[in-house]
């Protein structure tokens, strides 16, 4: 199901402040990932912006607030708008997070972890089946970082991720930085973790750097990619025919040349394993 997806190469999470530089360095960016929420109830200007981006780059919509892990089900109003956006863009795939952002009708405003239980897997699969009724474009699911581990786990995080993507027949958007962040904060072996993941399901990667706060590594998307994350990227790309990799810088935006240098580094890693040109 996933092997037929096209290889997109090296891309960038689009953020409005660097639109000028993006177009001045267009040849160094193969595709863009947009935050779907920015364009769901879009103003005329945002619609024009999306049109402009879509005519110049392949676009992957990245949703944040669908809340696939909500036991109460999905917000159909949100889902309808998301489906319309994805239909408009007709991407090769789209992505969401394995988490919940809404509970009891309240928007938490944060990607919150799920308990690693069969019940949570069931909830996710049920919601994903509902999503499929609206959106027939392949969905890939992203691993998140967390500040708290929910008690009552019936499996490890890696097993949980694997179970979800296998049972729901989704791809995996492996956020390498999230993986590194969790491994550092919870002292687990990231290589063991990688071994437990269904590697044939990995479609896309995310990478960026975070910052330290009171001894905790925060996934703030605010720093350049650390060496440990580069090593992980190298390891994953060597093992898996990854279709695309996205630099996801949000905060503390550096001169654009720094971003393109990171993209070039990711490109070189892909090239060395014949994943992309």
């Amino acid at each position: 199901m996933l092997s037929h997806l096209p290889t997109l190469g090296v891309g960038l999470g689009f953020r409005e402040p660097f639109i000028s530089d993006l177009f001045l360095n267009r040849q160094q960016v193969d595709f863009l990932e947009i935050v779907a929420e920015h364009y769901l109830d879009a103003s005329w200007q945002k619609q024009q912006e999306l049109k402009l981006l879509a005519t110049h780059f392949p676009i992957i919509p990245h949703a944040i607030n669908l809340s696939l892990g909500s036991a109460e089900g999905l917000d159909t109003d949100y889902l309808r708008k998301l489906a319309a956006l994805i239909k408009q863009l007709n991407p090769p795939w789209w992505s969401e997070h394995i988490c919940f952002t809404k509970a009891g009708g309240v928007d938490i405003g944060h990607l919150s972890p799920l308990p690693y239980t069969q019940e949570a897997v069931e909830v996710l699969c049920r919601n994903i089946a509902e999503v499929r009724r609206w959106i027939d474009v392949p969905l890939i699911l992203e691993n998140i970082t967390y500040m708290v581990k929910l008690p009552g786990a019936e499996m490890t995080e890696a097993q949980f991720l694997g179970e979800v993507v296998e049972r729901s027949d989704c791809g995996l958007l492996l956020d390498v930085t999230n993986l590194h962040t969790n491994a550092v904060n919870y002292s687990y072996d990231v290589h063991d973790f990688l071994q437990q993941l269904p590697s044939d399901r990995i479609v896309q990667l995310h990478f960026v750097g975070g910052h330290w706060h009171d001894g905790i590594l925060i996934d703030s998307h605010s720093q350049s990619t650390p060496v440990e994350v580069w090593q992980l990227i190298e390891e994953v790309v060597a093992r898996v025919p990854v279709k695309g990799i996205i630099l996801e810088r949000d905060e503390n935006l550096p001169p654009f040349a720094e971003l393109t240098a990171e993209l070039q580094k990711a490109r070189n890693i892909g090239r060395s394993h014949s994943r992309w040109g």
Partner: peptide, 10 residues
Amino acid sequence: QQLQATFTRL
């Protein structure tokens, strides 16, 4: 207009 909007950050 599109060019001006695209490169307005300059």
